[in-house]
């Protein structure tokens, strides 16, 4: 036992000095950093290429973002958008999973509904905005509704798909154990489709955020989307770019987090 540990120790220290723990961490961090640098260079290039600052430089954007982040108005906007987004995401997840389960359960209904949902989803949703405004008026509910319009369908379809691909023997096992329908969903169906659900939530996450922001541009007097549109009216390019940068950083970080969660789940249950 001890000699084995020693042997593996010496092997590690002899041949792989740089590939122990810090090396592994480096390997995970380096590609994103390189990618970020390349993106910043492209951005700078675009800034130089476009005439008279149609695109702000990275430095100017960053400076503007720092100023913005020092103002309380900005954080009010973030809170406003964040609240709408969290509501939209939570409702998209709950309704999407619920609807997905129902559509998978009632297979004929699901088969009819699937193409309808896909068609609805491929529709430019801008065309529906007047309708949403008519129903909800200006303000938070309309913004949340826009978010749900974008986030709900992908989560529903992914959930339904994951359930219909479920191994039938899992459901038969649930039946033999005499589980109620509710118990079967809770303790067999949901855990079985968790990796797909997390993937669906990841996609729904980005889309709900997009929906809320677009909603704010049309249907609100507050929030980051509104402030961006307002800045556009004033020709304040740096502010638009700064808000964009802020949102992009947030989306990339959240997406990365959800992606590693998804990988961890898949790895545990399906990987070898």
């Amino acid at each position: 036992m001890a000699s084995k540990a020693m042997a593996s120790n010496t092997v590690a220290s002899k041949t792989l000095p740089s590939q122990t723990l810090p090396g592994g961490a480096l390997r995970n961090i380096v590609p994103p950093i390189v990618l970020a640098l390349v993106l910043i260079l492209c951005w700078q290039g675009l800034h130089l290429a476009t005439a008279s600052g149609a695109i702000s430089s990275p430095a100017a954007t960053l400076a503007r973002l720092v100023v913005l982040m020092g103002s309380s108005r900005f954080w009010l906007d973030v809170a406003e958008t964040g609240t709408a987004f969290l509501w939209a995401l939570a409702l998209s997840i709950v309704l999407g999973i619920g609807l997905g389960v129902v559509l998978a359960w009632l297979r004929p209904v699901g088969e009819v509904m699937e193409p309808i949902l896909v068609t609805f989803y491929s529709l430019p949703k801008v065309t529906l905005y007047p309708l949403v405004l008519l129903i909800f008026g200006l303000g938070m509910p309309a913004k949340v509704a826009f978010g749900i319009m974008h986030g709900l369908v992908p989560i529903t379809l992914l959930t339904r798909n994951a359930i219909s691909q479920l191994k039938p023997v899992y459901l038969r096992t649930a039946k033999v154990m005499r589980l109620s329908a509710f118990e079967a969903v809770r303790s067999v169906v949901l855990p079985a489709i968790i990796p797909e659900l997390v993937a669906g939530i990841r996609i729904g996450f980005s889309l709900s955020l997009l929906g809320v922001l677009i909603g704010e541009m049309f249907a609100s007097k507050r929030g980051l989307g509104f402030t961006a549109v307002n800045a556009m009216g004033l020709g304040d390019l740096d502010t638009i770019m700064a808000i964009g940068l802020f949102l992009a950083l947030f989306a990339v970080l959240a997406n990365g987090g959800l992606l590693s969660l998804e990988r961890a789940i898949r790895h545990r249950s399906a990987g070898r």
Partner: peptide, 19 residues
Amino acid sequence: GVPDGIGVVFQEDASFPWL
């Protein structure tokens, strides 16, 4: 329906991969 007191081991692998 499935009666109480019957246990089944299926032909296919029915172990739950998430547990």
